[in-house]
Computed example of a mutant assay.
Amino acid sequence: MLIGYARVSSISQSLDLQLEALTAAGCEKVFAEKRSGTTTDGRAALEQALEFAREGDTLIVTRLDRLARSMLDLKQIVAGLASKGVTFRCLQQGGIDTTRPDGKLLLNILASFAEFETDLRRERQRDGIDKAKAAGVYKGRPVSIDVDKIRAMRAAGDGPARIARTLGIGRASVYRHLSVPARNRE
């Protein structure tokens, strides 16, 4: 059986082109999701596709970066498939077919490029944030916990668990803010 897997990184992106290509390639079952590819954590459709695949099946993606952006993740996924007797194919990088030695070589080369691209993007993002911070434009995440309210509730006799429940925050946050002197708060 041919099993397709499609992924885009954000909700605003469309899966349509990938779904059409996978269907045209003969995939009988297609799993799709809108999640980042930088990790396999939290990718339910990928997990379902990998569990669904049986010996003799082939997992197909349109592009290698749709499956994984990290060399380690890609190798683990492909090794897991191979251990089940499942092959892997990539439509737009047609030379990737794990049943052949040259396909395995190409898989590793392209996986290296995908990881390199992710690292470069992360580096550019960090440079942009550092530049914005230096210019005073980037202030970080807005404060979401009202420390004065925590202190007032504590002074009124409420315990950390009740404060946390009332404010909808974790107890650890309550303890952390109670232990910081008022003059050291941000």
Results as ranks from 00 to 15, higher is better:
159 G>L: 09
64 L>T: 05
168 G>T: 02
104 K>L: 14
24 A>W: 00
172 A>G: 10
67 L>Q: 09
180 V>P: 04
50 L>I: 07
56 G>M: 08
12 S>W: 00
106 L>S: 10
45 A>Q: 06
173 S>P: 04
171 R>F: 00
54 R>Q: 15
86 V>L: 07
33 E>P: 10
113 F>C: 11
128 G>I: 02
161 A>I: 09
87 T>F: 04
47 E>V: 12
57 D>P: 04
7 R>N: 10
62 T>Q: 10
113 F>L: 13
53 A>L: 05
167 L>K: 04
150 I>F: 03
47 E>L: 10
103 G>D: 06
100 R>P: 01
137 V>Q: 13
46 L>T: 05
19 L>N: 11
70 S>Q: 13
94 G>Y: 07
87 T>S: 15
51 E>M: 13
182 A>K: 13
76 Q>S: 14
182 A>V: 13
83 S>Y: 00
97 D>Y: 01
106 L>Q: 13
108 N>R: 11
101 P>R: 07
108 N>P: 02
120 L>R: 13
140 G>D: 05
108 N>I: 00
140 G>S: 07
176 R>T: 09
2 L>A: 04
28 E>D: 12
53 A>T: 02
126 R>A: 15
61 V>R: 01
119 D>Y: 00
114 A>S: 14
180 V>D: 06
112 S>Y: 00
100 R>S: 15
160 P>W: 06
155 A>D: 14
57 D>W: 05
6 A>C: 09
5 Y>G: 05
105 L>N: 08
50 L>T: 10
11 I>K: 14
2 L>G: 03
50 L>P: 00
108 N>H: 11
75 K>M: 12
1 M>P: 02
28 E>V: 10
97 D>W: 01
144 S>C: 00
129 I>S: 10
89 R>I: 00
89 R>E: 05
168 G>P: 06
22 L>C: 09
86 V>E: 00
173 S>Y: 03
176 R>C: 04
65 D>W: 02
24 A>I: 05
41 D>Y: 07
33 E>A: 09
143 V>P: 04
92 Q>C: 10
103 G>S: 08
116 F>L: 13
157 G>T: 11
12 S>C: 00
5 Y>H: 11
139 K>M: 04
4 G>I: 01
161 A>W: 01
52 F>T: 06
85 G>N: 04
14 S>G: 08
27 C>T: 03
134 A>E: 12
13 Q>T: 09
59 L>F: 01
165 R>V: 07
40 T>K: 12
40 T>D: 08
55 E>K: 14
68 A>Q: 09
29 K>V: 15
165 R>E: 14
109 I>K: 10
75 K>N: 13
99 T>H: 01
156 A>E: 15
124 R>C: 10
185 R>Q: 12
154 R>I: 03
65 D>R: 07
137 V>H: 11
128 G>N: 07
51 E>K: 14
31 F>M: 06
91 L>Y: 02
67 L>N: 08
134 A>K: 14
